[in-house]
Computed example of a mutant assay.
Amino acid sequence: MMLEKIKTALQVLNPAFLEVTDESHMHSRGHETHYKAVIVSEAFAGLSKVRRQQAVYAALKDVMPYALAQHTYTPEEWSQAEQAPDSPNCMGGSLHDVQQG
C-alpha cells in the first residue's frame, strides 16, 4: 500500500512526528494518488522551504506518489503551530476529467 511505503521512506528524515494521510477521496484522479505529509524533524533546521521539499522528494525517490502536500517543521516550529493547515477541496482541472461542450 502506498501510504505505508511513504511512511517507511520518510523515516530516513528521523521524524519526531510523522503523519501521512491519503487524501485521494478529495480528488478526481482515483485511489492512492493524493497524499498529505506532516513531517517534524531536526533535519529541517536551517533549511529553506525549497530545501526541505527537496529533502522530502529525495527520501521518496523510489515511491513518489502522484501528488503530495508537504508540511515540514522543525520541532520548535511544530511546538508553535501544533497542526498543519487543512487541505483544500479539489477544484478539478485534471486531464482525466471528461470535458463538456
Rank of each mutant, 00 (worst) to 15 (best):
T21D: 08
E19D: 13
E4M: 04
L47I: 02
Q53F: 01
P75N: 04
Q80A: 13
E77F: 06
D62M: 03
A16Q: 14
H34L: 03
S48T: 15
S41Q: 05
E19M: 08
L47P: 00
S87F: 06
S24E: 10
T74K: 10
N89R: 14
Q53H: 15
L10K: 04
M2I: 09
Q70G: 02
T33F: 03
N89C: 10
N14D: 14
S24P: 05
G46D: 07
A43N: 09
D97S: 13
S41G: 05
D62S: 13
Y57D: 13
T33H: 00
P88C: 13
Q54W: 04
A37V: 03
P65E: 08
M64W: 07
H34N: 06
M91F: 11
Q99I: 15
T72E: 01
Y73C: 00
L18F: 01
V20Q: 01
F44T: 01
G93F: 04
R52Q: 15
Q80I: 08
K7V: 05
G101Y: 10
C90Y: 08
S48I: 10
M91N: 15
A67I: 04
E77M: 12
Q80L: 13
I39T: 07
M91Q: 15
A55V: 04
Q53A: 11
P65I: 05
A16C: 06
S24L: 08
H25P: 07
T8C: 11
Q53P: 00
E82F: 07
D62Y: 02
A69L: 12
M26K: 15
Q80S: 09
A81D: 10
A59H: 02
G101W: 12
A67L: 04
A43K: 12
S94F: 14
E82K: 15
L10V: 04
T33S: 11
D86S: 15
F17H: 14
G101T: 07
V12P: 03
L18Y: 00
V40A: 08
A69C: 06
I39V: 15
Q70Y: 03
M64I: 13
K5I: 01
Y57M: 14
S94H: 12
Q53L: 09
V20L: 05
Q53W: 01
M2Y: 06
L3C: 03
A43T: 11
K49R: 14
K5P: 00
S41F: 07
R51P: 06
A81E: 11
G30T: 05
A59V: 02
R29E: 13
I6E: 00
V12L: 12
F17S: 10
E23D: 12
A81W: 06
P88F: 09
S48Q: 09
F44E: 07
V20W: 01
K49H: 13
Y73G: 01
E19W: 00
T33Q: 13
G93K: 09
G46S: 09
E23C: 11
Q53V: 01
L95T: 11
S28F: 02
V56R: 00
